[in-house]
């Protein structure tokens, strides 16, 4: 466990340094000139830090939702939570164009509504099986996607292109404020989720088990849904819908440290940061000077893993 934590921290530093150096313009680690400094501090670092916050956010949201819903396939993007946040962000764009703060707030509201909707659809008298939850996620996702597409018709052509890119996950619009907000959200969200980790350990075994052994199930559900909506809302408002991070990262962390959420949640935050910083570096260097949406890169890894997890059992 200490070994794993240490490895993660070292890996994070290496990936951060690598991401800072690599790009359309290759930067040295030391002795930067004026122009290079400006590239590093004004463009590259905000983007890298945003990538780290977004990665941590999506990974902890995935870890929390999986345990709460007893389903290793639960993930913000696949459940439609990210699309809920995306719709909220778009509404903020259309309704309050210049007001930057409206975006994360409506994104949070959208994420929360989508979470509740998918939960209520998936829940039946007989409980909630894996397939039913995933299908409910598909329904919510496609429904929200069509609303988003309708909203895009209100946008002009230039905005439309950047939007399409943003929908697939785009970190190139990183701003200082966006980074601060995402950072605050991921810290608060991770603390809330970690505080519920012991309850989640019981929820992961069964909702009835949790109830029988003293967990206030309704309260835990509210806190986890709230924290997940908070981090996903902040992440999506800043960077669009990056998919599969919440699936891949907690899965790998569980392979390394087991299922105890007191380890899985905080380690997922760090590992998620590493993963998205890495994926974003690939996205902006693979076909440089052009860029891929980071969501395309994460989906390339995530979709096969999803199939594997679905078939296993």
């Amino acid at each position: 466990m200490y070994l794993f934590g240490g490895t993660l921290l070292v890996l994070l530093l290496v990936v951060l340094a690598g991401a800072a150096m690599l790009g359309a313009e290759r930067l040295p680690l030391f002795d930067l000139n004026e122009q290079q400094r400006s590239i590093l501090f004004d463009i590259r670092l905000p983007r890298i830090f945003l990538a780290a916050c977004v990665g941590g956010s999506l990974a902890v949201a995935g870890a929390g939702l999986q345990s709460l819903l007893r389903n290793p396939l639960a993930e913000p993007y696949l459940l439609g939570v990210s699309n809920g946040a995306a719709l909220g962000t778009m509404l903020a764009f259309v309704l309050f164009d210049q007001l930057e703060i409206a975006r994360p707030i409506l994104a949070f509201a959208g994420a929360a509504l989508a979470t509740v909707a998918v939960y209520r659809m998936a829940k039946s008298r007989a409980g909630m099986n894996v397939e039913r939850l995933v299908l409910s996620g598909v329904i919510v996702t496609t429904f929200l996607s069509s609303v988003i597409v309708m909203l895009t018709t209100l946008l002009d052509a230039a905005k439309l292109r950047s939007f399409t890119f943003w929908l697939l996950g785009d970190l190139s619009q990183a701003t200082r404020n966006g980074v601060y907000l995402s950072f605050a959200a991921v810290i608060v969200g991770t603390i809330i989720l970690t505080s519920q980790a012991r309850a989640l350990n019981l929820m992961m075994i069964g909702e009835r088990d949790a109830f029988d052994f003293g967990v206030e199930v309704g309260r835990v559900r509210l806190l986890v849904f709230g924290a997940a909506s908070l981090v996903v809302g902040a992440a999506v408002a800043a960077s669009g819908s990056v998919g599969y991070v919440g699936l891949i990262v907690p899965h790998l962390v569980r392979l390394s440290v087991g299922s105890d959420n007191r380890l899985v949640v905080p380690f997922s935050a760090v590992a998620g940061a590493i993963f998205v910083v890495f994926a974003d570096t690939v996205a902006r260097t693979a076909i440089a000077p052009r860029e891929l949406p980071v969501g395309a890169v994460t989906a390339l890894v995530g979709a096969p893993l999803f199939i594997y997890l679905l078939r296993k059992r």
């Binding site: 999986q66 290793p72 350990n201 569980r254 087991g258 299922s259």
Partner: peptide, 9 residues
């Protein structure tokens, strides 16, 4: 009994 899909010891 209740089966869990997570690797719990």
């Amino acid at each position: 009994e209740n089966e869990t899909r997570f690797p719990v010891t």
